[in-house]
Structures are given as C-alpha cells and as structure tokens.
Design a protein around this nucleic acid. Structure first.
Length: 593
RNA sequence: GGUCGCGUAGCUCAGUUGGAUAGAGCACCUGCCUUCUAAGCAGGCGGUCCCAGGUUCGAAUCCUGGCGCGAUCACCA
C-alpha cells in the first residue's frame, strides 16, 4: 500500500475517533517548498462536516497520525493545511525499492490488459513528409509507448493514402515532363522526386488556368477545364478501372515514395506493426452502410445517396454513401475500423490526426456507436494543433514547407557546431561523433515538439533555431551523460544499500526520491490524457532537481563510504528514469556529450 | 452565423480530482569552472492568469455572457 492511502485511512480513523464522523475522502497535495513537510492534508473541506476551527482540527489529526503511523515523525499546521513530515527511514526504504526495480514506473501487461491500436503518420504518397507530419509521428509513437508503459497491449499502425487524384497529378507530371528520371538517376530520395512532380503539376495547372482566364473563362471554369487536370482525372478513372499501364506507373512511383518514407521513419526512430493501404480499404464500409439502413441508423434520399441524421446529437446530417453508390471518406473509415477490430481483436483505438478533422471523428465515433459496436466507446481522436510558420500555413504545392529530412539535418548540424565549440568529445571516433550529433539534434527537435500540450498550435520559426539550453532535450541528455560519467568514475557495485538507518537525508536527496516516486503516477496520467507533454515536464523537473543536487552536494568527494555509495545509487536511479522517460518520448540518451 | 479548441511574464510554455505568496526556460542583470562534464548552478528583474459577472471558506482552474485567434460546418480527404 502506498503511503498516501495509508495516511488517508488513518485520517479517516482519526476523524471517526475524534468527531464520530465518516469522511468520504481526504484531500492531499504535495507540501509546497516554502513550508516544512512532505505531504499535506487539506482540512478545509472537512469543516463542512465538523464544526471546529481548522487549526484545532489539523493539530488533532496531526497528533493522532504521529502516534499511529510509524512513517510520520512530525507535523505542522498552517490554517487548513496539515503538513506532514515523513521519516528518513521511509524515504530510504522507498528508494531501495525503486533502485532494485529495473522497470520502475511501468505497469505490466497481463491477461486483463486492454489492447489498443494507435494510428499515426498516415501520409499521402504524392509528397515528402514535412514538419506537420513530424509532430504527428512523434506524438503517435510516443503515445503508443506511453500506453504500453501504462500496461496496455499496443499495435502501431498507419493507413497510407496511396490512391486518388493527388498521386495521379504527380504521375501525370512525371510522365509528361520527367524524361524517365528515377531516384537512382538523380540521386534524389524517392519521396522528394515524386513531390517535385506534384509541384510541377501545380505550376503547369496554374499556367493553363491563367491562359484560359485570358481567353475569357471564369476562374472556376478555368480551374476545372484546364487540360492537365482533365488528364489527371482521366488517369484516376483508368486507375479505378484497373488499367495495367496506369497501375504499373502507380506502383513504381509509390514504391519510390515508400523507400523515401522508410528512410525518414528510420531517422525519426518510429515504426509500425502493420500498414494499411487505402487502395485496399477504400471500398470497405459499403456493406456496413447497407446493414445500417436496415437497422434504421442510416436513411436513403431520393437521389440514392445515404445519410445519417445527427441533428439530435447537436450535429448535422452527414453523407455516408454517394448517390452513385461510391464510398466517401467516412464510409472507408467505418469499414476500416471494423476491419481492424477483426484483424487484431482490439479493445480500442487512438487516431493521431490534426484538429482540422475534429468534426469528422466526432461523427465517425457517433456512427460506430449507433451501429452498436461496444468498442466505439474506446475510440480516441488524438487531436493536435497545426504547426504553422510565421508566414502562415505550410503548403506542399507551393513549396512553403519545412521538410522533415532537411530539418533533421539542420538540427544535427547545430548540435555538431555546439559540440565542437565545447570540445568535450576528445576520444570519440568521427562515426561516434556523428551518431551523437544526430542523437542530440533529434533530441532537441523531439523534445521541443513533445513538451507542448498536443492540442496547442505550434508556431515554428525556422529563422530562430530550436534551443539547446534550459528546458530542452539536450539539457536532459546532458544531465544523463553527467550521471554516466559519475558512474564510470565511482566504479562501485550498485547493489544493496549500506546506509545506517539513522542516516539523515540531505534536503536535495529527499526531493529527488520524491520526484522518483511520482514516476508511476505520471505514466498513468500521461496515458489517460494521451499526453507526452506530461512525461516531458516530469523529466525536466527531475533533471532540474538532480542538477541542483549535483552542484550543491558532493557525490564522489564525500569521505563516508556508505554515503558515497548511496549518492551514486541515487544518481544511477535518476539516470535510469531519465532514460526510461525519454524512451517513452522516443528520445535517446548519450553516455557522454 | 452554428459548433469545437485555444487565450497565463517581452517571447516559448507548465500549472489535471478547485487550495497556501501563480511557476519554469529564453531574453536582460549579479555571482560561481586549480574540486564529480558550466549544454550547468545560485540569485535578481519581470504578471489586469483576455474581459465582466456568478458558484465557493477558497477560482488561472468550475458556470454564464462577451472579446480575440484558429479550426470546422462539401456527394474533398
């Protein structure tokens, strides 16, 4: 039983003893730094049931607790706050348990664990990944790791949007103006090559629009009638009809893109257990719509289109099947969700998709629930804010994007120049150095993005570089490296504690142990809230606390061997938790830097 | 216009069952490297928690109404 539960029980006992009142619950909070104590019981709420003044009540409870709870050594009362001081012995044994558990903080998966599928990334195949995708990937990957650590079974997936007019545009442009270029012939990454033709298409399209307008057409007419667009649409129709030539081109160019994505995913350090392809799933869901009509969930309009009426739920009518019988996005998503539950026996799903699709997912979940699927209650839209530039939205067609690969390279370069300036890596080979620069650059980028609440919009200014000091990834990595340096120098066995029970903990040591203790709760909270930001902030607090300890308390310099060993063990545990927590964020930590 | 999200220091952000004097980083200013890695530590400066009401012993947090920013409301995805 954890200490808070124990105290809660004893407080209830005290109140029932002293005032013959049963408390429903006891309110706790960590004691603020400006007061003496470790945990605080807030007694204000009790005054509703007990007519007395808060100071008297606090004192009475405090005395009872000191008498009856061995871990409590003293207390003080400030108004309605009962500040409780816990014994050193309690902290030491608590720390011992932490130090001896290599998986501290993580809940185990067992037969009762839920299985959750996390969908993220889900790119279109007509252009390379940009900063917006980076946020999506980092969030999705991290939330999957956090869910695992919280005791769920997790499958990671992405649905690749490999069909449609967008890829036909790239295909058409390549066919017309590509001169047979390939990734091999140009040395370009495949996704970049295909993306270039998407831009090329847009340029040609714009030229044609301009000339049509000069011939007297309206803008709307010009856009729709421009010959390149008409040709791209024809290509899509051929694709849907299974035209072999078009399919072959489609397969070839998609493969280039996949090879390119694979490289980016690898550098980003994200992965998937299963890929779904829209070319396989875009017809799914139609039969479900038919069933839904029978159940009365959907209705058919005179023109043959099928709708759902959500006005009673405060939403609008939404189409689920076109009048020509073809599937819309919603149809596919209904079908795909059901397919996934069949494939993996999952209990729930997390969709990592930008907040521009909030409405879509609200409707999707509502529909699945109306269709009677129980797991519909376990669907979660991990909705995140857009990443905007100072100049506005990123647009691939217009080339105003921060390319993922370029950004990573740039971050790595910054890490390199800072490292070289500091010059602490004497004995590292150049390969080791390059690895490290990448680790730090990525650490800075990932932390920068993940420390922000997912719902919030991020304004990214490429002119101002991402920081490497203060509340940043590299600062935390640096602290980890410092700890490893101590461990190397200490060269001690870290098993078993030799500290006498009478040892009085330094204030900083105590704060560190407290911070370590809250790791398991932090993981659970982060999982419930689908928020890597909570892990990032936790880690930062831990690291700040450690650096303060490090610079105010001597670790290896202390003459007392038992004390030295304890401090080394404490440092090691902090390092382990940093590594574990950063693992949940998908950030690696270095031995030196 | 309807719906949803956001609004906290000059800037970027914490602040999650409503609790004590609202916290960090960056920037700016002071100190600290012959001693465990100064990508650090110790301190200073900096606040109309968007505004106005309400609920409460107590509100940045909950409710109502405004204001501002963003998203969305397609037989697009």
């Amino acid at each position: 039983m954890n200490i808070q539960n124990k105290i809660e029980q004893k407080v209830k006992e005290a109140i029932s003893h002293l005032h013959q009142v049963d408390l429903a619950q006891v309110e706790f909070q960590p004691t603020r730094k400006d007061f003496e104590g470790d945990v605080t019981v807030v007694t204000f709420p009790m005054l509703r049931q007990i007519k007395t003044n808060p100071v008297q009540l606090g004192n009475a409870i405090g005395e009872y607790l000191v008498e009856n709870v061995e871990e409590i050594v003293s207390f003080n009362v400030v108004q309605g706050f009962l500040n409780i001081v816990l014994s050193n012995k309690f902290y030491l044994s608590s720390f011992e348990a932490i130090a001896n558990n290599s998986d501290f903080g993580k809940a185990e998966v067992n037969e009762y664990s839920d299985t959750i599928m996390v969908e993220y990334s889900s790119p279109n195949t007509n252009k390379p990944l940009h900063l917006g995708h980076v946020r999506n990937n980092l969030l999705g990957f991290s939330v999957a790791e956090i869910l695992k650590a919280s005791g769920r079974r997790v499958y990671k997936t992405q649905i690749i949007n490999d069909r449609g007019i967008h890829i036909c545009k790239s295909m058409l442009a390549w066919e017309r103006w590509g001169n047979g270029e390939t990734p091999e012939s140009t040395g370009l990454k495949g996704d970049k090559l295909v993306g270039n033709y998407y831009v090329k298409f847009d340029q040609e399209h714009k030229k044609e629009i301009a000339s049509l307008i000069s011939e007297g057409k309206t803008e709307v007419e010009a856009k729709a009638q421009a010959p390149v667009l008409v040709a791209a649409k024809e290509m899509l129709i051929k694709w849907e009809a299974g035209d072999e030539e078009v399919k072959a081109l489609w397969e070839k160019m998609n493969q280039w893109v996949y090879d390119g994505f694979e490289k980016t995913y690898k550098t980003l350090g994200v992965d998937f257990d299963k890929n779904y392809y829209e070319s396989n799933t875009y017809l799914l869901g139609k039969d479900v719509v038919a069933e839904g009509i029978e159940k009365g969930v959907f209705f058919r309009k005179d023109d043959g289109s099928v709708w759902i009426d959500l006005t009673e739920d405060g939403l609008d009518e939404k189409i689920v099947l076109r009048s020509d019988g073809t599937a819309v996005y919603m149809t596919q998503d209904i079908g795909t969700a059901i397919q996934r539950v069949k494939d993996f026996a999952i209990d729930g799903m997390v969709y990592t998709v930008g907040n521009e699709q909030d409405y879509h997912f609200k409707v999707l979940f509502l529909i699945l629930s109306k269709l009677g699927y129980e797991w519909a209650n376990n669907l979660y839209h991990l909705s995140y804010g857009m990443v905007d530039l100072p100049t506005g939205k990123m647009k691939s067609r217009e080339g105003t994007v921060v390319d993922a690969d370029d950004l990573i390279a740039q971050m790595t370069q910054t890490a390199k120049s800072i490292s070289e300036e500091l010059g602490k890596l004497g004995e590292y080979s150049s390969e080791e150095k390059e690895e490290l620069y990448k680790m730090i650059g990525l650490g800075a980028l990932k932390y920068y993005i993940l420390k922000v609440d997912p719902r919030k919009r991020i304004l990214f200014n490429p002119e101002e570089s991402v920081d490497f000091q203060g509340n940043t990834g590299p600062f935390i990595q640096y602290t980890y490296a410092r700890i490893q340096s101590i461990l190397r120098k200490a060269n001690l066995e870290t098993d078993g504690m030799e500290l006498p029970q009478s040892y009085v903990l330094h204030e900083k040591e105590k704060e560190l142990i407290k911070q370590l203790q809250s790791y398991p709760d932090t993981i659970q909270l982060a999982a419930e809230n689908h928020s890597p930001a909570l892990i990032a902030n936790y880690t930062y607090d831990l690291v700040k606390e450690f650096n303060s300890f490090y610079q105010n308390v001597t670790i290896l310099g202390t003459p007392d061997e038992a004390e030295k060993k304890f401090r080394v063990q404490l440092s090691k545990s902090v390092g382990d938790i940093i590594k574990s927590a950063f693992g949940l964020l998908g950030i690696q930590v270095p031995e030196r830097m």
